[in-house]
Each structure stands twice: as structure tokens, then as C-alpha cells.
Nucleic acid binder design. Structure first.
Length: 344
DNA sequence: TTAGTATT
DNA sequence: CATAATACTAAA
């Protein structure tokens, strides 16, 4: 019996394999978007397939994907995926999962060094087998070796249950609040959205001295390894290789940064799309008018949603399941300026 | 400066 | 035609 999660994983897998094959980016995006839509679906695909409208009624599904999902539900197999896996070795997906290795690097390692498995990569990286590849210098190879070591320590799995990492999240948030010049700090990301499985922890800090705060963050006792540190953000690994990101912003940008860092990605993309249609630009620093660049929100998260004509949306609901449409404020003035439906 | 990867 | 925007690092 094929369930929604199986379908979502399969669609994601197709997207990843197509990406390594350097397939048309819009096709790749279509498969990944369809995977996300299935993840967020409240109803069984098997039930949907049995109805009149069928799978074409699912958001993100066109004829090609609908037909493939139908085959998967019916037979438990997918001919297209099997052919694709015969062409692009699926073991490359594990290589692609290493931090710092994306689809282009995975394809390069495959084509130029003939490597398809983690084991082959490990041997080659340590014995000079990757030397001389274009766009892959000594530092990149060293980073791959480090990533392989980390993978051996903690295994392939990345996500952890909320209860397991919640203490770390609050301890680090409080530690950031104690750094001099920090005005406010909150845990954002999937933690703030109350998700059960967490891939990392995201902390937003308001300060007038971002570099100082990020330097202090990188020096906290819970930090085992600094992955990167710039002027606005710092990524570290805590115990068991669990990643924690800290973003430092000015006090009047805190609301926009909290909104951005809370996500979800799909929610942010939809929100920014709405902003564009309203002649606005939304980023992690605020909301700006497209003409003139005047900033009209950013200090508070409520303000960000407000200038976009929306009620504030609780973090748990920011998953692109229709919450933005449901939050639209249709005042008289707005109804004249933007008649219902005109912004969609 | 650009390509690749990463983040929500 | 195709849903946004920005940061960091290494390589060229």
C-alpha cells in the first residue's frame, strides 16, 4: 500500500535525480513542488484518485505527474523512476546530501572521477583521487572529508525529535540573550512552527553590533564546530552534529527577520509573491515599496503582515496550506483599491 | 567576479 | 511561460 509519504518521497527523489542529470530547472522544480504539496495534503491520494476529478485536482499536479502518481498508487512501482535510476546512479543522492555538495558537484564527481558511492568518494578524497577536478580545490576536498567523518559519527539521518533538541534551543537562546548588546533573541524556524521533527535550530538576535554577537555566539561552550561565520549570520554544529544558525539583525529589522527565519519556505515564497503583486518587496530586512524603496515595515512581525493586508498568522499555520488567503483583510478601502481576487 | 551551495 | 530574496565560500 503506497501512502502519501511514499509518493512525496518518490517525487522528491525524481526531482533530485533529474537535478543531478542537469535537467531543465523548471521540470525539477515541478517535481519538488508536487512533493511538497503531497506532504501538506490532508487527504489520502488513494481517495483522491478514486474521485471524478482525480489526481489532476491536486495542486502542483499536471498531466505528467498525475499519471506517474496513478501508476505508483496502482502498482507500487514507477517505470519512469526505474529508468531514471538506471541512468543516474541513485547512490549519488547520498553524496549530494553531504553539506556543501550540491547537484553540480555530485554530477562533477560522477562524470569526471567515475565515483557513484559514498565509499568510493571517501577513498578517493583521502588518496588524491579528486585532485585536479575543475572547481574542486584543496579546501573543497578537505570539506568533503570533514563531512564524511561527521556522517560516520552520526549516521545518515539528520532530523531529530523536538523533545530531544528543545533543551539545546532554549539554552542557546538564553545564552544569546546574555551576549552584551543583544536587545532581543528568539528561536525561529521549524522549532517556532512547532514541528515535531527538526533539522536544525534557528535563532534571531537583534543587536547594533552583529559581528560582536556572532563572534560571541561562535565561542559558546555548546559549539563543537563553526561551519561558517559572516557579518550577518553564523552556522555552528553542537553535540551530535546538530546544526544551529544564528542571524544578527538591527533592532528595527527584528520583525522581518523573525518572519523570514520562521518560514516555512513555501509560506515565505507565497508571501513574497503577494508582496510583489502589491508593488512591494519583502526580505529579511523589511517591507519596501518597489518604487522609491521606502521602507514601510520590519520592526515587528505583526507590522509585516499588516502592510501586506493580512492578519498576523500563528507560526504553526505557516505551511502554505491556504493560511495566507484566509488571513486577507478585506476592508472597504482595500476592496476599492484591490477588488477581491485582483491580487490572486 | 562568478559559480555553487545554503537558508527561510 | 514557469512562485522570492539574500548570504557565504571557494574557485577562477
Amino acid at each position: 500500500m503506497v501512502n502519501n509519504d511514499d509518493v512525496a518521497r518518490t517525487l522528491q527523489r525524481i526531482g533530485d535525480l533529474l537535478e543531478i542529470r542537469e535537467e531543465n530547472a523548471f521540470k525539477v522544480r515541478a517535481y519538488k513542488l508536487a512533493a511538497t504539496q503531497v506532504e501538506n495534503l490532508g487527504e489520502s491520494l488513494t481517495d483522491i484518485a478514486a474521485r471524478e476529478e482525480g489526481l489532476l485536482g491536486v495542486a502542483g499536479f499536471g498531466p505528467a505527474i498525475a499519471e506517474k502518481v496513478a501508476e505508483l498508487l496502482r502498482t507500487g512501482r514507477l517505470d519512469y523512476l526505474e529508468k531514471l535510476e538506471a541512468e543516474v546512479p541513485p547512490t549519488l543522492l547520498s553524496i549530494r546530501e553531504l553539506p556543501g555538495v550540491g547537484p553540480r558537484t555530485a554530477a562533477l564527481i560522477w562524470h569526471e572521477a567515475g565515483i557513484t558511492t559514498i565509499e568510493e568518494l571517501d577513498a578517493a578524497a583521502r588518496s588524491g583521487g579528486l585532485d585536479g577536478l575543475p572547481r574542486l580545490g584543496a579546501r573543497s576536498i578537505e570539506r568533503i572529508v570533514t563531512a564524511l567523518d561527521a556522517r560516520k559519527e552520526r549516521g545518515a539521518h539528520r532530523r531529530r525529535p523536538r523533545a530531544e533538541v528543545a533543551p539545546l534551543a532554549t539554552v542557546l537562546r538564553d545564552a544569546v540573550r546574555d551576549i552584551p548588546s543583544v536587545i532581543a533573541a528568539e528561536v525561529a524556524g521549524s522549532f517556532r512552527r512547532s514541528r515535531e521533527m527538526l533539522g536544525d535550530i534557528d535563532i534571531v538576535a537583534a543587536t547594533s553590533q552583529p559581528v560582536r554577537v556572532l563572534t560571541a555566539f561562535a565561542a559558546l561552550p555548546q559549539v563543537e564546530r563553526v561551519l561558517l561565520r559572516g557579518d550577518t549570520k553564523c552556522s555552528i554544529e553542537a553535540a551530535q552534529g546538530f546544526q544551529v544558525d544564528c542571524r544578527a539583525v538591527a533592532g528595527d529589522q527584528f520583525g522581518a527577520a523573525l518572519q523570514y527565519f520562521t518560514g516555512s519556505q513555501a509560506h515565505n515564497v507565497r508571501l513574497r509573491g503577494r508582496a510583489v503583486r502589491m508593488g512591494l518587496l519583502l526580505n529579511e530586512y523589511g517591507v519596501f515599496r518597489t518604487d522609491g524603496g521606502e521602507r514601510i515595515a520590519g520592526e515587528s512581525e505583526h507590522g509585516v503582515y499588516e502592510v501586506l493586508g493580512l492578519r498576523w498568522i500563528p507560526p504553526e499555520r505557516r505551511e502554505d496550506r491556504g493560511e495566507i488567503d484566509a488571513a486577507v483583510i478585506r476592508s472597504v478601502g482595500e476592496a476599492i483599491d484591490h477588488p477581491v481576487g485582483s491580487e490572486v
